[in-house]
């Protein structure tokens, strides 16, 4: 059982509040993504779990053991740093063996474990290289191998893929996920890249201004963001505001649409759920909007629309926009179930 929990964790730097009473459970064996804009406190939270940041209040529990007063080196963690932080004065094998050497693991066993873990990250033959002789992706694998060879209770990843270029990043995402599954280790990672978070995580947590504002399975959070910030931060969203009239929601311009079950007066419609048509669809709540621009992007197309002084976006397979005019008045609509109610921030 290697569950990690943080309880009421707070930390401030002078007057700036980095963490504000954050409580969160990171399930055993799960891959948990911490997501947020810069300054949201996600890195502080990760470093508090690692022990590099001493919280002002609250507790961190690793495997039910309170560790706030335990120094970093005794917490049994594995960590992958943003620029990998490979020791330049050691070879790949020596880097990976470092944690074992510190723990006085017998040489023979250490050698076997290093070989095994290098095999796992597919770097078997490169053990004698120096870090500066490796490519970015290879360095990333060494950092990963070094972090897991000591069999820590929790693996912490600090923006692990941000130093890689885009194509490599996608490959490494798959690789990271594979390694994590094989080792089965509780993993917490920090990223500002929402796509990466959605791809990798079993669960995600969204932080803003030091507070945890949403937590859940990625699909769940994406389809039902719950508040304006999350809706906009995680993917794109068309946010429409109205006022409650007779159980319906009256939008600007007077069109009435179905009001979400939770009684919210703000709704979010994902661009892929917004239909655009030349003729009026058979839905009472269709809106008249102005098509400003059509953008071709390979398989998918984007329509940029203007409605009541607000910019909206619709995304669909390119063919679906085929019979639209280049610009001019069009109709937009969506299914009621795709309109999710939002709380104001």
């Amino acid at each position: 059982m290697s569950e990690v929990r943080v309880e009421n964790l707070s930390k401030s730097y002078g007057s700036a509040c980095a963490l504000d009473a954050v409580s969160l459970r990171f399930p055993d064996g799960g891959f948990f993504g911490l997501l947020g804009p810069s300054g949201s406190g996600k890195t502080t939270l990760l470093r508090a779990i690692a022990g590099f940041v001493e919280p002002d209040a609250g507790q961190v529990l690793i495997c039910d053991r309170p560790v706030v007063d335990v120094p970093v080196e005794a917490r049994e963690i594995g960590m992958v740093f943003q620029n990998y932080a490979l020791f330049p004065n050691m070879s790949v094998s020596e880097n990976v063996a470092f944690g074992l050497r510190v723990r006085r693991v017998p040489t023979v066993e250490a050698k076997a474990r290093v070989a095994e873990v290098l095999e796992l990250v597919q770097l078997g033959p490169l053990g004698d290289r120096r870090p500066h002789e490796l490519s970015g992706g290879q360095r990333q694998r060494v950092a990963m191998a070094r972090a897991i060879v000591t069999r820590p209770s929790v693996l912490l990843l600090d923006e692990p893929l941000s130093a890689l270029d885009k194509a490599l990043r996608v490959d490494m995402q798959i690789e990271l996920k594979r390694i994590q599954r094989e080792v089965g280790i509780t993993t917490i990672f920090v990223t500002h890249d929402q796509e990466e978070a959605l791809t990798l995580s079993d669960r995600i947590g969204i932080l803003k201004g030091g507070r945890l504002i949403r937590e859940g399975r990625p699909e769940e959070v994406y389809s039902d963001p719950g508040d304006v910030f999350t809706a906009r931060f995680l993917g794109e969203a068309n946010v429409l505001e109205g006022r409650a009239v007779d159980g319906a929601l009256e939008l600007a311009g007077g069109t009435r649409v179905a009001r979400p079950a939770d009684g919210a007066t703000m709704i979010a419609v994902r661009p892929e759920h917004l239909s655009v048509s030349r003729d009026r669809p058979e839905i009472a709540s269709a809106l008249r909007a102005d098509l400003r621009q059509r953008i071709f992007a390979g398989a998918m197309g984007t329509c940029v629309l203007h409605w009541e002084g607000q910019q909206l976006k619709a995304v669909a397979r390119h063919e679906e926009f085929a019979d639209l005019p280049e610009s001019g008045p069009v109709w937009i609509s969506w299914c009621d179930r795709h309109a999710r109610g939002l709380r104001a921030e």
Binding site: G51, V72, Q82, F98
Partner: peptide, 24 residues
Amino acid sequence: VLEEAARSLGASPWLATQAVMLPW
């Protein structure tokens, strides 16, 4: 961050200094 890396791998502050910073 190299010293932090060493500590995350279980090295005491003094060992981290000795193994990573002094050689550098």
